[in-house]
Every structure is written in structure tokens, then in C-alpha cells.
Nucleic acid binder design. Structure first.
Lengths: 274, 274
DNA sequence: GAGTGGTCTAGACCACTGT
DNA sequence: CAGTGGTCTAGACCACTCC
């Protein structure tokens, strides 16, 4: 139907991809619908199958289309994103001074899967490291300072697919004040890091989250079982105690197609004027 | 050098891309270095140039490699990300009750480019719309409720490239209380939306940011001039007044390769125990 | 088994970069 | 100008899905 080459020399694949994208956005093609086959596209646009495939590949990279493999590709349903809220910081702090019976069952360093541990393998790897430039800046300490590094991994028991991953660093001198903290056997600590810090006399006063996103490498995409066109959200969380010392740094990744990060910012009241 | 086909039937392009990725991550290839040419890769891996190109294409999609076009592709330098902090919400609120002389020069709905307006074209488009399902949920009102929609666009004056983009909605009944708010001529309102709401007796009490990311469509990538493999951060900001009414909803996009969103969460003190 | 997409090839043609 | 990557083609071969 379409003329093969317009005045502006736009690649055919872009042209096809754009037409299909518009059909998706305007609802001509709806969630789950099948796209035209490569053969049909090649015929309609008078191009080779390779070019038609490139167009579909573009849409997959944009997260608009999934499938293939013996079936026609389909319009990707709008992803359902689970909220991960910053109000969890306050909740975890409140928990830290509760008795163990209450803390138990909440714990777990970085996540709160509602299906806590049932279908998942949990792995914790601890090591002592010395701060590289990046971590030294985050902790505001000298490069080379000793840190306790703790890496937490959750995988689906059946498929081995990652469902949560994070790394946490604690200053070595803090960790050494309570040997239990450095023991991987205690990874599922009731009450989490806030309580661990509480046992060595540290009160966390504020948490700063740094958020950005990037495309996964091939191995990351495999580990998380990410569809094409799914970015990873990167979060670095820095915890400061009441004297503004950096007492923990945490890096975590979240697949953007299943995650909505939420942050609450309460503002001070205008008491005087009301 | 490499045997053409190992036991596991991994596509050649993935194999090449993985080898190159490891060289980048281990520092054998450093920021800005040239990669092997397609011809060299095809020779070394005994594959076609097309396959070698696919490998480079993968790395570009992952944001690890840039360039081409008559030059060998190069390792992409680590992007510099500008921080956009949630502390801005409190600053803007503090500003709202200041005299106009102080508010002036801050203003502007969604951004604070340090080079305020000099090299940029600023465009504001206002319209009345009725809430679709999504917005009705966000505002917790009936579908179809009247809203003032305001879209703000910043473009580089020379290139026309987007540098900031956002859409803000206000409930129609709030906007109509002060006709100046609905007048596009006042888009560069000194003190921003917080002051606009202040003029109609509304005090914003908390702000909630919802953050996720997605790959840009072809047109978005063009509009922002995004390199391959760059996700867009999506932020929906919801402002609540002191009676917990939703008084503004804002959607904004930020290119992930140049943006680091930061969120501060102050925690309540354990006054009693210290 | 027919139809689908995925991988791969060899080669043509073009546009861009450097010398 | 030679060398580079970008687009495109036609066709082979494979793996998968569905009937």
C-alpha cells in the first residue's frame, strides 16, 4: 500500500515501525492483538522480510511488542507495576525498637515479597572490601576504608530467575561492634539493618534515594528474565545517622516493567498564617 | 581466534557482544576507545559482517557503545547525571509566601535549568480537558471531571532538541478561582504552582512521586536526541493539600543518561530513648 | 506439515569520515 | 580517495507453534 520511498530518506524499518506504533497508540491494535506477519509486512511495504523483521525488532526494543517464535508477534499488555514505597524506611525504623516477636517475619534486608520466602531461594554473600573511589565518596571517607559488603539475592525456586537483588555496605568499624552483623548465618535478621544498627547504638535519621535507569546487559537481561525493551531501575540508598554520618549504602536493581518506586515528601506546615 | 560454534548453540552476535562487554567492564577497552571494525570482528570470529554489526547493535542498545557512521564505534563514556532533588518541593513551598521580587526568577513550572531561559525556547499549551480513567484515579474524582491541562516544553533554541517536558493538571474548580492561573500568558509564574495554589487559599502538605522507566519510542528518542540504549524516566508527582485533597498531578520525563533523581526521607526521632 | 519468526550469509549500494 | 558503518536484498537453514 505504501510507496516505497518518500522524499525524506527514512529507512523502511522506521517507517513500518512508526505506522504500527501509531496503530497501537490509537487503539487500532489493542493489547494482545497479533501484528501482521513479516511476510504480510514485506508484501504491503514492498520490502524484504529482513527489513520487516527490523521494524518488529524496533518495536520490541521499545517494549511495545512481544512474542514471535513460531507465532505472530503481539501487542504487549501494559505492564503491572508493584509499588515500592519510601514509607518503608519509617516502618523499618519503627520496627527496630520492637521486641523480637514482632520484628520476626518482617526482617530481610532489602525486600518485602508478600510471598515472603516460600517459592524463593535466598542467598547472602558477605565479604570485607576496601572502599573504591565511588564508595569512598558515598561514605565520605578515605579510599581504601574497610567496609562490610553484603549481597542479597532472591531467585525463583523453579526457574532460577532473579526476583530481588541488592548490595549493602556498612563501615567496617560499625559492623565489628557487633560480630553477629558480619555473620551470614544471620542474614535474615529480624527487623533488618535498622535494628542491626540499633544494637550498636546508631539511630538512622534520614535516608536519601538516588534513582536512575539503564538498559540491562545481556547477562542481566537473562538473570532477571527481562522482555526486550525493559530498562533496569538503579537505586542507591544512603542512610545517615543523627550526626549525619553515612552508616549504610545500598545499591539495588528493579526491572522497570514490574516496578513503580514511590517517594513521599511531607512539607512543613505554614502554622503561623492559618 | 574463536571457534565458530560451541556446543551450546549461542548466536554469534551474542557471543561477540559478550566478549566485547567483558573487555569494556574489565577495562581492557576504556572510555572513548575504538572497538574493532566490523571487518576485523567478522574475520576474527569467522562470521559475516552482518552478524558482527548485530553484535555492535546489541552493545549500542545496552548503552555501552556509541558512534559509527564512517568511524569505528567507541566505548561510551560514563554519562554525567544531573541531580533533580525532591528537596525542591520544600523550597518551592517556602518561596510561595515570599514577595514577588524574591519569587521572580525562580518560577517556571517544572524545571530549574541553571541557564534559565537564555538558550531555550519555552512553550506552554493550556487546555481544558475531562479526566480519563487514569487521571480520575489520580485525583480521586469522577471520570469526566473538568481539569486544566498545562503542557510545558523547553527546547534548545539552535537544535530544537527537547530539554524539559512536563504536563500538569489542576482541578477545574481550583483553577477557575483565579483566572490568571488559566492564562498561558502567565506561564512563567513567579514562584510556580505552589504560589498559584496559595493565591486561592490552598496549602500543599505533601508530595508523592511515582517513578518508573521505559524505552522511548522512535519519536521520543528523536525529540530528546537520545543515544541508543537510553531509557526515559517517568515521574508522576501528586500534590496533596492539608485536607489530603489531590490538588495537582504532574507527569514529567527525564532522559536516564543525564538525570539522577534524588529523594530525601527524614525519619522521626526516637526522642524518648536517648 | 504448513506457517511462523530467528539466525546467518554474500553482496550491492549509499553516506559519512578521515587523509 | 580508501575505509568505515548503515540500509537493503534474496535466499538458505533451523526451531518453534498449531492444526
Amino acid at each position: 500500500m505504501e510507496p516505497r520511498r518518500t522524499t525524506a530518506h527514512q529507512p523502511v524499518a522506521l517507517h513500518i515501525a512508526d505506522d504500527l506504533r501509531i496503530k497501537i497508540e490509537t487503539g487500532v491494535l489493542r493489547s494482545g492483538d497479533s501484528l501482521p506477519t513479516l511476510h504480510e509486512l514485506a508484501r504491503d511495504y514492498r520490502c524484504s522480510i529482513t527489513s520487516a523483521r527490523a521494524a518488529i525488532g524496533l518495536l520490541k526494543q521499545q517494549g511495545l511488542v512481544v512474542g514471535g517464535r513460531g507465532k505472530a508477534p503481539t501487542v504487549r499488555p501494559a505492564p503491572r507495576r508493584v509499588e515500592r514505597s519510601s514509607t518503608r524506611h519509617q516502618m523499618e525504623k519503627d520496627l527496630a525498637r520492637q521486641p523480637e516477636e514482632i520484628r520476626r517475619g518482617h526482617g530481610l534486608a532489602e525486600d518485602d515479597m508478600s510471598a515472603s520466602l516460600d517459592g524463593f531461594d535466598f542467598e547472602a554473600r558477605y565479604s570485607m572490601v576496601s572502599a573504591d573511589l565511588d564508595l569512598a565518596n558515598a561514605f565520605r571517607v578515605q579510599e581504601g576504608t574497610a567496609l562490610l559488603r553484603r549481597e542479597y539475592t532472591h531467585r525463583d525456586k523453579k526457574t532460577g530467575v532473579l526476583s530481588a537483588w541488592s548490595v549493602s555496605w556498612l563501615p567496617g568499624d560499625i559492623a565489628s561492634k557487633n560480630p553477629d552483623i558480619s555473620d551470614p548465618a544471620n542474614a535474615a535478621w529480624p527487623g533488618g539493618t535498622m535494628h542491626q544498627l540499633y544494637t550498636v547504638g546508631i539511630e538512622v535519621d534520614q535516608v536519601i534515594d538516588y534513582v536512575t535507569a539503564a538498559m540491562p546487559t545481556t547477562v542481566e537481561a537473562q538473570a532477571w528474565d527481562l522482555p526486550d525493551g525493559t530498562p533496569l531501575l538503579w537505586v542507591r540508598r544512603i542512610s545517615l545517622d543523627i550526626s549525619e554520618r553515612v552508616v549504610e549504602v545500598t545499591d539495588a536493581q528493579y526491572p522497570a516493567d514490574r516496578t513503580m518506586l514511590t517517594f513521599h515528601t511531607p512539607l512543613t506546615r505554614w502554622e503561623s498564617s492559618r
